[in-house]
């Protein structure tokens, strides 16, 4: 068998566009994951038991069911129950489809990020909170200005890993027809029949994205270490 990459001359924009979509998808996923994750962690650590239980149940359920089921649930099942994400005209792409994917991925990631954030908050010395409260600061002021910044610094490596995981796992949203890197790759090999070459290129592009991401995060970490 011989390798033939000449199909790239025609198809390379598919890989680039796919990679772009994957990155956008991943960034939104991580942002949603982080925001919802912080909320889940705060709920879980709060004094009010029912709220804490809701957070724990959510986390367990999301982590105990397949991401694919969650994605299909949001994309197919919710609209059937009348919960439709409206199309926004003038965007030039299928917004409900894209938003469903991001929402499902973000809500899934949040369950994992929530546990990371919770561990990060718990790892901050209790003396930090006591000092802040003894000065008259409120619980939220303490969280916002003292605990979360320290927790965030400690969990940055774990959050970086989560970002890398999301980039890889986002390939699953090809199943609801989002034209990200994996979806586009499948388009390329179905038209060109160059399965081997297409998938090699696809893997390389994923690797460049994940490798660059972890390197950039490594630099960020070292910067933050130096500052304190």
């Amino acid at each position: 068998m011989e390798l033939n990459f000449s199909f790239l001359g025609k198809y390379w924009p598919m890989f680039i566009r796919g990679a772009g979509t994957t990155l956008i998808l991943s960034v939104f996923t991580v942002v949603i994951g982080l925001i919802v994750g912080i909320v889940l962690a705060l709920m879980r650590l709060g004094k009010f038991k029912p709220i804490s239980l809701i957070s724990a149940a959510y986390t367990e359920f999301i982590r105990g069911t397949p991401l694919m089921v969650q994605i299909f649930f949001i994309f197919y099942a919710l609209p059937q129950m009348g919960l439709k994400i409206p199309q926004i005209t003038g965007l030039g792409f299928d917004f409900p489809r894209f938003a469903s994917g991001i929402l499902a991925m973000g809500l899934n990631s949040a369950a994992y990020v929530g546990e990371i954030v919770r561990a990060g908050i718990q790892a901050v010395d209790k003396g930090q909170t006591e000092a802040a409260r003894s000065l008259g600061m409120t619980g939220w002021q303490t969280m916002r200005h003292v605990v979360l910044p320290q927790a965030f610094k400690n969990i940055l490596p774990a959050l970086g890993n989560e970002f890398v995981t999301v980039i890889k796992e986002s390939s699953i949203v090809m199943t609801i027809g989002i034209t990200e890197l994996m979806f586009n790759t499948s388009q390329v090999y179905s038209s060109s029949f160059r399965y081997f070459e297409s998938l090699i290129i696809c893997a390389l592009v994923y690797f460049v994205m994940t490798f660059t991401t972890s390197r950039l995060l490594g630099v960020m970490e070292r910067r933050m270490k130096r500052s304190a």
Binding site: D125, G127, Q128, E130, A131, A132, R133, S134, L135, G136, M137, T138, H145, V146, P149, Q150, K153, A228
Partner: peptide, 21 residues
């Protein structure tokens, strides 16, 4: 409570300076 705590300063054995600031 917070208003009262403002007026009662406390110094700890382990200092507890805010490490991020």
């Amino acid at each position: 409570l917070n208003a009262l705590r403002e007026r009662i300063g406390m110094v700890f054995q382990q200092f507890n300076l805010f490490n991020n600031l």
